[in-house]
Amino acid sequence: MNTTTGQTLSKVPEVTLLFWIIKIAATTLGETGGDAVSMSMHLGYLVATGIFAAVFALAVVAQIKARKFHPSLYWVTIITTTTVGTTLADFSDRSLGIGYAGGSALLLTLLLGSLFVWHRTLGSVSVNTVSSPKAEMFYWVTIMFSQTLGTALGDWTADTAGLGYTGAAAVFSVLLALVVAAYFWTQVSRTLLFWAAFILTRPLGAVVGDFLDKPLSAGGLALSRYSASAALFAFIVISIVVFRQRAAATAH
Rank of each mutant, 00 (worst) to 15 (best):
G220C: 02
A206F: 02
R225F: 10
I51Q: 01
T250R: 05
T148M: 15
T3L: 05
Q147C: 15
F145N: 10
G6S: 06
G102L: 04
L200K: 02
M137Y: 11
G44S: 10
W140C: 10
F233R: 00
A230P: 00
V37P: 08
F56W: 13
A170S: 12
L9H: 04
L17N: 14
V241M: 09
F138I: 10
L110C: 14
A248S: 07
T191C: 07
M1G: 11
A248C: 02
G103N: 11
S227T: 05
V15C: 11
L18Q: 14
S124P: 04
L18K: 05
V47A: 09
T8R: 00
F69M: 09
L153H: 11
F211D: 02
S224T: 04
A181F: 12
I24C: 10
D93W: 01
H42W: 11
G164E: 08
M144C: 15
V117K: 03
G162C: 05
I51A: 01
G209L: 02
E14W: 01
G162R: 02
S10N: 05
L204W: 02
T83N: 13
L216A: 03
Y74H: 13
S239K: 00
M144A: 15
S95V: 15
A53Y: 13
F52S: 10
K11F: 09
A54Y: 04
K23Q: 06
Y183A: 10
G205E: 09
A196D: 15
S38V: 12
G164A: 08
T86I: 09
V130K: 05
L73S: 06
W195S: 14
S132C: 13
G44A: 12
V12P: 01
V12E: 08
K11S: 09
D90L: 12
V180I: 13
S72T: 10
G103K: 06
G220T: 00
A158P: 02
T201V: 14
V61T: 07
T191Y: 03
T4I: 06
V242S: 06
N128I: 09
T81V: 07
V241W: 11
A26G: 11
R202T: 15
V55Y: 03
S229E: 02
D35F: 03
V37N: 08
V242W: 07
V15K: 11
A196R: 11
L106F: 15
L192A: 14
L58K: 01
F194K: 13
A182E: 15
P71N: 07
L115P: 05
E31G: 08
A101H: 10
V242A: 10
N128L: 14
A234K: 00
T5V: 07
A181I: 09
S146V: 03
V37C: 12
Y183G: 06
S189H: 07
E31S: 11
I51F: 07
F194H: 15
G33N: 08
L200M: 08
F69W: 08
V117G: 04
V12K: 01
R246L: 13
Q187G: 11
F194Y: 15
G85E: 07
A234N: 04
G123R: 03
F52L: 10
I64P: 01
I236D: 09
A101D: 12
W75E: 11
V15H: 09
S227K: 02
G113W: 04
D90V: 07
A161M: 14
F211G: 04
F56A: 12
T109K: 09
T81P: 04
A101E: 15
G209H: 00
A234G: 03
